[in-house]
Design a protein around this nucleic acid. Structure first.
Lengths: 275, 275
DNA sequence: CCTCATATGTTCGCTAGCACACAGACGAAA
DNA sequence: TTTCGTCTGTGTGCTAGCGAACATATGAGG
């Protein structure tokens, strides 16, 4: 492919670990329809659904189906077709780009503040990235026809979807800049903060190997950076479980990128606690 | 700001060169209204305008005003308010992110295939990046009220604008990955190809210093990478003028990122030659 | 033709992060 | 308890790109 490409030796290892994820995925297709979680209030755990006016909300309600998002499940593949728009109510979904030689980078991250599958309403039907569940959780999914109808109305739903897309764009731009200019240490802090912002507790189930895949760096690099944070008592980790002990401490170390993304988020989609 | 931030010493130099740009900009506000270029067919030099059905086109025509985009002109500033949506018919506009310590990175690039100011219809009104004219040219601009009205119709215009936004997202994602995984040499090739794709001739007015700002690297690095390309007779440059001599040669050296962006572009917005 | 600001070339030491190769350490299952 | 797979820690080169300082070239304007 590329003669002058960086040697893909280690990249192969990364690819393997991604394969592992994908196999997990095929083993566990989305179950959980009609679980105990299915009570009206759960919908409002997704901030976008929560922000919908009553009128749109009642229209969409019957279309929404609750599903479980197991760790590692691939919501959509690069170039693949989507049949649903997803509104997470818990857990984290990563938008991941995987290069032809197996190296990968996280492009953006979505939790219960957003939705997964913007290409459905943007018009492309597919994108060049992959969406993977990074932390298990649940989501409501909406079939494409319903989505398109509601979007075409040009009302609150369209408005929210587009604003959310704009925050995603900000996140992607910031990731790009961060990749270029900031140290691995800072990027790890950013990643940790963005992630725990999307969880209720401050505990992540995530190995350093996977974090390395997200950040697009070597696992050893993450070990080193995480080691520093642990020494500073900001986090604690062992065997795929990371606990944030001192959030303000992380915020001191992180680069500007985190704040930019967060501020832009609050500017565009101020979250109102659902009634 | 960031204690562990990379030293901003050289970044300062970069900032200065950006200042220079901005001063040029304030010296030359958009003139050129009603120039000789103003003939009906010129609108169609912008691919998005060209793709509009007659019905929308005639509605928008009276709203469009031709302006010149001088080199270095800032269409909008990070966080700043926009009053127009721009449809370039020639020249190149860079979306640039500048960090607090003065380092910068190009996020995406727009020519006559697209439009500048997506935040206007996405809903944010502003973005965290800056749009700078990288190669002088002309554009039609549309005032915000007209834009919003047309967009709200939910017709072809909305459709095209959103599809274009999707290609822009692809470009940003790819830039991010490229920043992480590919060598400066390859990135330079990508940048050159993306740029000359948006120009009629294969000549760029651009110093290595400025390219370095776009790519977010040191000028010396660009000198070295460009030197290799010149030795290989792929390009020729001197004092701020770069000529591409051997396009296929560049395409052999470039990383996958260029092709991904280009293919996605053609998939989403196949350009039909205007009648 | 000369001057001078600007653009490019080159050098040297330095650091972050890479590749590769193991060693330990923990925990779930047998 | 033992075993074994998975995580994490560490070390040894190595390279790309950084910072800084300076040398050279070149073209536009006097």
């Amino acid at each position: 492919m590329c003669l002058t490409e960086h040697t893909p030796s280690n990249a192969t290892a990364r690819l393997l670990s991604l394969w592992r994820i994908r196999e997990q995925a095929s083993r566990r297709p989305p179950p959980d329809k009609g679980s105990r979680l299915k009570s009206a209030n759960n919908h409002r755990k997704n901030h976008l659904l929560a922000a919908l006016p009553e009128e749109s909300y009642v229209r969409l309600l019957p279309e929404l189906e609750l599903i479980a998002m197991p760790l590692g499940w691939v919501l959509y593949e690069s170039g693949g077709r989507l049949n649903y728009l997803y509104f997470p109510i818990s857990g984290i979904v990563s938008l991941l780009y995987v290069t032809t030689n197996g190296a990968s980078s996280e492009i953006a991250i979505t939790g219960n503040e957003g939705l997964v599958g913007i290409s459905l309403f943007m018009g492309g039907e597919s994108t060049t990235n992959r969406a993977v569940v990074q932390c298990a959780g649940h989501a409501y999914r909406m079939p494409v026809p319903a989505l398109k109808m509601e979007f075409a109305l040009g009302g609150a739903f369209q408005h929210l979807a587009l604003r959310y897309t704009q925050t995603l764009i900000t996140q992607m731009a910031q990731t790009s800049v961060c990749n270029r200019h900031h140290s691995l240490d800072q990027q790890l802090c950013r990643w940790l903060l963005l992630s725990i912002d999307r969880l209720k507790d401050s505990e992540l189930i995530m190995t350093q190997e996977l974090i390395a895949n997200m950040l697009g760096v070597r696992r050893e690099g993450v070990t080193e950076a995480a080691g520093k944070l642990q020494q500073a008592k900001l986090i604690n980790y062992s065997r795929g479980k990371i606990t944030v002990l001192n959030r303000p401490g992380l915020e001191k170390r992180v680069c500007e990128c985190y704040a930019v993304v967060k501020n832009e988020f609050e500017r565009l989609l101020p979250y109102r606690v659902p009634a």
